Amino acid sequence: MLQFDTIAGLRQQLKSIRSAQSIGLVPTMGALHEGHATLLEAARQENEVVVSSIFVNPVQFNNADDLARYPRTLETDYKLLEGAGCDLVFVPSVPEMYADSPLLRLNFGALETTMEGAFRPGHFNGVGIVVAKLFNIVQPDRAYFGQKDLQQVAVIRRLTKELSFPVELIRCPTIREADGLALSSRNRNLTATEREQAPLLFRALTQSHQMLAGGHSTVQAKNAVQTLFANSPAFTLEYVEVVNADTLQLADEMLAPGQTAICLAAHLGKVRLIDNLVF
């Protein structure tokens, strides 16, 4: 596995590859886990060359404490990448990616006014900027993202369409622990007690799914989730919404199979957790 810490170096290596071999990209912020491994495995199956990036992108954080707490585990990340068949890993410094603070501002419309957009102002602008840079640097044929960050996938889909990036986006299923907790790099910051409590998110999603499938309204399903968290004082629920899984527009009723998602975010101690379930 080759390692690069400059844009120029990575571009030079890819120049001779791109014309003859397909390239799959798995962007990450490090602190890798089995969920990332499944993205890499999907990329390995569908491409001749797999590229991954590790970059904790400061411009997508609207909370300095959250940025400081984000786990950094570079040595173990390298081992996971090698084990999953990654060919090239890009690990730039902040000055390498941003010689100056970016002035560009991206507007993703309604995606920025609901759920993650509403509670993390500026977050998707930062996501859009770094993904656009990675797409320009690597020029992949396909890029792989996890369903756990469903709204992020919708933002990147919009970015790809409007800027005409010739990249196929692949959304891979959420990987969970045996108790249902979605794998996330931030799970490392949970205390032992909080880790035992964290599966409440998946239980809430499962309960709301059962209610919707049983004919209850979206309002009733959301109210049940709010009640569940109200009775769990360790948590602070930020939002719960039923949406179109592709557009992220709010849904008043169940849509076609595979088109309805329920999404939520909650704070547990100092850790903010998000999850979703696509029906």
Rank of each mutant, 00 (worst) to 15 (best):
Q197N: 10
R157L: 01
L134N: 06
Q151W: 06
V131R: 05
F135M: 06
E196M: 14
Q197F: 09
Q147N: 00
E168A: 12
E162W: 11
Q152E: 08
R171N: 09
I129Q: 06
F165V: 12
L159P: 01
Q147A: 04
V153K: 06
T193E: 14
S164N: 10
Q139W: 03
A178S: 15
N189G: 01
Q197P: 04
I175A: 03
R188T: 15
T160F: 06
V138C: 06
I137W: 12
G146K: 07
I170G: 03
R186L: 07
A143H: 02
D179V: 08
E194Y: 09
R176C: 15
E177S: 10
T191Q: 02
Q152P: 02
V155D: 00
E168P: 01
R195C: 08
K133V: 05
Q139V: 03
L150R: 07
R186E: 06
E162Q: 14
Y144F: 15
F135S: 05
G180K: 06
F135R: 03
V138W: 05
R171V: 14
E177N: 12
Q151R: 09
K161A: 12
R195A: 15
R176S: 15
R158T: 15
I137E: 11
G146W: 05
G146M: 08
R171E: 14
L163I: 00
R176W: 15
S164I: 05
N187T: 08
L190A: 03
R157T: 05
L183N: 13
R157H: 02
L190N: 03
G180Q: 09
K161R: 11
C172R: 05
R158D: 14
N187M: 11
A178H: 15
I129H: 00
L169K: 00
A132M: 12
L163T: 01
N189A: 10
I170C: 13
P173C: 13
T191W: 03
T174Y: 06
K161P: 00
R195V: 13
L134I: 09
L134P: 01
V131H: 05
C172T: 08
E177T: 08
E177D: 14
F145C: 10
S185I: 12
S184T: 14
G146L: 07
R158W: 05
Y144G: 12
T191Y: 02
C172Q: 11
D179F: 04
T174M: 09
S185K: 13
Q151S: 11
A178R: 15
A198G: 04
Q152V: 04
S185V: 08
V130P: 09
A198R: 03
L169E: 00
K133H: 08
L159D: 09
F145H: 10
A143Q: 01
T193V: 12
L181G: 05
